[in-house]
Design a protein around this nucleic acid. Structure first.
Lengths: 340, 340
DNA sequence: ATGAAAGCGCTAACAA
DNA sequence: TTGTTAGCGCTTTCAT
C-alpha cells in the first residue's frame, strides 16, 4: 500500500461494499453491528482517513473557508484569524489563509485561488472597495468583509470616524491645540475615516487643520522616526500626537523614547502589548479583533444557511482606555527645562 | 447558471470538447489559435475558474500545505505563518492553518483533518513528541517540525539549551547570584531545554540551583504577576530575572513596572515589540521566526521532491541583543533606598 | 490537433 | 440492511 488507503481498500479488507464503509464512516445508524465492527477494524488497520476532497467534489461544497488579510503578522489580523479559526473549528470548518500585502492584484489572485479551492465562503479585509472577480459567484460564495467595508457586501467594522473624533476631543480637552496625526495613509479607507474624524474634532473647536501635522506614513513603515521628526521640527511643533494605528504606535512610542520626547501627550488608535508599561502609559482606543472575527464568522455561517439574506453592515463598538498619556498638558503650560 | 461554471459549460459555450478547454486552461501549446480564442472568450464570459479540488482528486496531490501551531495569535507563530505563507505562495501552494492550544488530542484532530483535506505536506509545532497518527502516511505526506523536535522527523529549531545557558552566563557575569527563571512550563520541551541551560550555567559557576527561583508559569498565562511576586517575596529574593519566553516577557515587564521593581536585571528569551522602549530596555535572545518559517518550507519542498530524503535536524542560530537590562548590577551593590 | 472514454474517492439514488 | 450504478469536475490514455 504505497499511498493512503481509499474507501475501496477498506471495503476489500472488510469484505463489504464501499457503500457500507461510507455508511459506517459517516455514522449512519442502519448498519449491522457485526459489519460495522469489521469495517471499523479495517479502518484502523489501514489508517483510513476519508478524502474530504473527493467528498466535497461530490457534494459541491467544501468544508473550508478562506480568510484573506493584509498581512498575517499584524497583531490585529493574527488575533482576528485566531478567533475565526477557533470558531470555524467548532463549526467543523477548516481555514485557508492568504495575505494581500494590500496589493489589489494579489487580492484578486488570492480570491480566485480560494474560489478554485472550493471554499464555502470568504472573510476578507478588502483592498479594493469592490470585488468584481467575485460578483458572478455571489449566489454561491458568501463574503464577509472585515476592518474595511466592501460595496454591497456584509461587513464587520468599527466606527473609525467617530472613535478618532472622540480621541482627538480628549486631547483638545487637555488643552492641546497643535495635535499631529501620525499614521495617515490614503491607501487605507480606515485611515481616511480616522483622518476625517481628527479634522472634524479640530473644526468643532474652531481650530484650523494644518496639513503639516498630518504627514504621510506608509502603513508598513514599522518605525516612523522620520515622520515624528518632521512634525517636531516644525516652527510650531505639536504638543500631542494622535497615533493612527496600533502597528505604528509601538514604533512611534519607541521613537519618542529615543528622542527623549516623552512629554508629548498621546492617544493610540488600537491597544497594544505593553501600552500600559511604557512611561507614560499609552491611552488607547480599543478595537477587539476577537469580537470582530467571531461576528464575521457567525455572519458567514448565516449566509451559508441563507445566501439570499440581504447585506448588513455591522459596526462593533470601540472603547477608550484612559491611561496616562492622554492627560499630559501642553509643554507651554509646563515650562521647566527639557533636553533637546 | 446558478452555481459556478464547470469545464463542461465552457466547452458547450465555445463549441469544443472539454479536453480542448482543459488544454487551453493548462496552457498546452498544441491548440489551434482560433479555438484557443473561442475558449478564452467563453472562460471570460462564464467567469470560469478551474476547480482545483477536482484537479487534485485526479492527480492525487493537492496544492495546499498545512501549518499547525499552538496558537495563531502568538507573535512568534504568526510571524512564522506569515513567512511560510509568503514562500508557499511563490511556490504556488495555498496554506491551511490550524491551532492546537497545545492539546495533544486537538493536535491529532488537526493533523487528521489536514490529511483528509489532502494537503501535500505539513509544517507543525508539535505538541506530542511523536505523531503516530501520521506514521502510515510517512511515504506520501512529508512533515517538518518547527520550534520543537519530533521523533524521526525533519525539524527546524534553535539551540534552546545553549542560548539559555549563555544568557544566564551574562547575568552571572554582571555579578548576580540569585537569578529567577520565569516561564518554566514542563509541558513544553523548549521550556525544559531552557531550564537545563539555566541550571547548567549556574552549576558551571558553582551555584546551587534553588527550585524556589523557578516557579511554574503556565505558558498561556499572559500576566505572570503571581509568579513574580512569589519569587520577590522569598527571604532571599532574586536580583535578576531570566524570562523564559517572549510572550511572558511582555507581561513580566508590565508587572515589574507595576510593582516598581525596574531595578531587576533582565534577559528575555525572545525579542518583542517595544523591548527597546521600556526603561530599562530589555536585552533579548533573538530567534527569527521568518528564517525558521522559510527554512521549514524550503525543506518541505525538498521532501516533496524526494520523499526518501533522510530526516535532518536543522538548528537556526540565535543572536543575543544586548540592551540595558542585562547590565544592571545586583541591588546589594547599589544599596540606596527603594520603594517596596 | 482534437475528442471519447475511463477513472480519481466519494456519496446519492435506487434496487435487492 | 446491504449493494449497484451513476456522476461530481477534472485529467489522462488512446484513438482519430
Amino acid at each position: 500500500m504505497a499511498g493512503r488507503a481509499s474507501i475501496k481498500d477498506v471495503a476489500a479488507a472488510a469484505g463489504v461494499s464501499i457503500k457500507t464503509v461510507s455508511r459506517v464512516v459517516n455514522g449512519v445508524s442502519t448498519v449491522d453491528a457485526g459489519m460495522r465492527e469489521r469495517v471499523e477494524q479495517a479502518v484502523r488497520d489501514l489508517h483510513y482517513v476519508p478524502n474530504s476532497t473527493a467528498r466535497s467534489l461530490k457534494s459541491g461544497a467544501g468544508n473550508t473557508i478562506g480568510v484573506i488579510v493584509d498581512s498575517i503578522d499584524d497583531v490585529f489580523f493574527s488575533s482576528l484569524i485566531s478567533a475565526i479559526e477557533e470558531s470555524a473549528l467548532s463549526a467543523g470548518l477548516g481555514v485557508v489563509i492568504g495575505s494581500t500585502g494590500h496589493d489589489p492584484d494579489r487580492e484578486r489572485d488570492q480570491v480566485l485561488r480560494m474560489t478554485a479551492q472550493n471554499v464555502r465562503g470568504i472573510i476578507l479585509a478588502p483592498v479594493s472597495d469592490r470585488l468584481d472577480a467575485l460578483e458572478p459567484y455571489r449566489p454561491v460564495l458568501p463574503v464577509v468583509a472585515v476592518d474595511r467595508k466592501l460595496a454591497d457586501r456584509d461587513s464587520v467594522t468599527i466606527d473609525d470616524h467617530g472613535a478618532a473624533r472622540s480621541a482627538v476631543a480628549e486631547l483638545l480637552a487637555a488643552g492641546h491645540r497643535r495635535i499631529a496625526l501620525l499614521g495617515w495613509d490614503p491607501d487605507f479607507s480606515t485611515s481616511q475615516d480616522r483622518r476625517r474624524g481628527y479634522e472634524d474634532a479640530l473644526r468643532e473647536k474652531g481650530i484650523e487643520v494644518d496639513p503639516d501635522l498630518v504627514p504621510l506614513v506608509p502603513y508598513r513603515d514599522p518605525r516612523p522616526t522620520q515622520a515624528l521628526r518632521s512634525v517636531l521640527d516644525l516652527t510650531a511643533p505639536p504638543t500631542a500626537l494622535f497615533l493612527g494605528n496600533a502597528r505604528l504606535a509601538a514604533g512611534a512610542i519607541a521613537a519618542t523614547h529615543t528622542l527623549g520626547r516623552t512629554d508629548l501627550a498621546l492617544i493610540s488608535f488600537g491597544d497594544f502589548l505593553l501600552a500600559d508599561s511604557v512611561d507614560p502609559s499609552v491611552s488607547c482606543i480599543d478595537q477587539d479583533p476577537y469580537e470582530i472575527g467571531e461576528l464575521a464568522l457567525r455572519r458567514l455561517l448565516e449566509l451559508l444557511e441563507d445566501p439570499q439574506s440581504p447585506a448588513r453592515q455591522h459596526i462593533v463598538p470601540t472603547a477608550f482606555i484612559p491611561r496616562t498619556s492622554h492627560t499630559l498638558t501642553p509643554r507651554t503650560l509646563t515650562p521647566e527645562g527639557r533636553t533637546r
